[in-house]
């Protein structure tokens, strides 16, 4: 792992994006690592674009400001590709993880991604609908981010999803999210 991995999440209010960033931070605690998870705060409105951030590092994290040059950009809602510049501040080797039905090659062309930039897609909304009947794509996106970054093993992430969702939801919803996280991990397509 690089010394610090910085992730920027783009989603819309109500999709569980902030929760995903929190679960990822918690899961990445293992191995003595340092983590941060924080949303960009504004008036909280369902459907409004929002950003959340993660930092994961092998040394103490002192930086307390938004991630400006992300190693990973995660787009939880594909409609944001047309309304904001999700590639802002991206580096030559930034990885984009996009929830979309489209082919990764099509997204690569749309983003005009560079040769060293990875473009990965997953149909997270469909997975969520299949697994627990709600268009809540955060858990499959977590699976996809886990696969792309290799920050933690999928088994470790699933344990953490179980723990985090277990506080709030019924067994059926927890099982659905576990399945969705696993499928998000398995069904990423790169192009």
């Amino acid at each position: 792992m690089a010394e610090t991995v910085e992730i920027r999440w783009h989603g819309r209010g109500g999709q569980g994006t902030v929760t995903a960033a929190k679960v990822l931070a918690d899961a990445c605690l293992s191995g003595g690592r340092y983590v941060q998870a924080f949303p960009e705060y504004g008036p909280e409105r369902a459907g409004a674009p929002l950003r959340a951030y993660n930092r994961v590092a092998s040394k103490e994290l002192r930086m307390h400001c938004p991630v400006l040059e992300p190693d990973v950009v995660t787009v939880v809602d594909a409609t944001l590709l047309d309304s904001i510049n999700i590639a802002e501040g991206a580096k030559d080797n930034t990885a984009f993880v996009i929830n979309t039905t489209k082919d990764p090659k099509e997204i690569r062309a749309k983003l005009k991604a560079g040769p060293k930039q990875r473009v990965v897609t997953v149909d997270a909304t469909k997975i969520a609908l299949d697994c627990f009947g709600r268009a809540m794509p955060n858990s499959p996106m977590l699976g996809a981010v886990c696969k792309v970054t290799g920050l933690i093993s999928i088994d470790h992430l699933l344990d953490d999803v179980r723990k985090s969702f277990g506080k709030k939801f019924s067994q059926k919803i927890i099982d659905g999210n576990i399945e969705a996280t696993k499928r998000g991990y398995e069904e990423v397509k790169e192009g």
């Binding site: 929190k22 931070a25 918690d26 605690l29 690592r33 340092y34 983590v35 941060q36 998870a37 924080f38 949303p39 705060y41 994290l61 307390h64």
Partner: peptide
Amino acid sequence: LDGFIISHSIER
């Protein structure tokens, strides 16, 4: 402690 920057950020 700083509002939001610390109060609402998850850290180790």
